[in-house]
């Protein structure tokens, strides 16, 4: 059985998804304020790393990285509702790319597993 990452299409799938996902996130009024003043190229690179991880691909993300990377946002009020909004945008992106539902479910499970670290709990 090949990994989710392989089934979903590997790096090419990440490349296809990253701009669509980032555009959804920036266009979402519930969360766009967290991206104000952020360097877009650096952020796009981070989105790519996040998607690679969520797709079950090769990555070096640790829970500690997730915590440290979001700590300043938690101080600004990042909470479950924002995490849910990002997850929603991720699912929407995958649907647009016609990813089969069973794979979307697996990706969402991986994304969900980062919730406590992202929110610093």
């Amino acid at each position: 059985m090949s990994s989710v990452y392989e089934q979903i299409g590997g790096e090419a799938a990440v490349d296809a998804a990253v701009d669509i996902f980032y555009r959804h996130v920036l266009g979402d009024n519930r969360i766009s304020r967290f991206f104000e003043g952020v360097d877009m190229e650096t952020q796009a690179q981070k989105q790519k790393a996040f998607l690679t991880m969520a797709f079950g691909g090769p990555h070096n993300y640790t829970g500690k990285d997730m915590r440290e990377g979001h700590a300043h946002l938690v101080k600004q009020g990042l909470n479950d509702s924002h995490f849910d909004a990002v997850a929603e945008n991720l699912a929407k992106t995958l649907k647009e790319l016609n990813v089969p539902q069973n794979l979307i479910d697996e990706v969402m499970t991986i994304a969900e597993s980062t919730r406590e670290d992202v929110l610093g709990r």
Partner: peptide
């Protein structure tokens, strides 16, 4: 940069 991205340009195609 943000507006052109939202208007559909890919990040890789935006040179700022």
């Amino acid at each position: 940069q943000r507006k052109t991205f939202m208007a559909g340009a890919n990040m890789k195609d935006i040179h700022a």
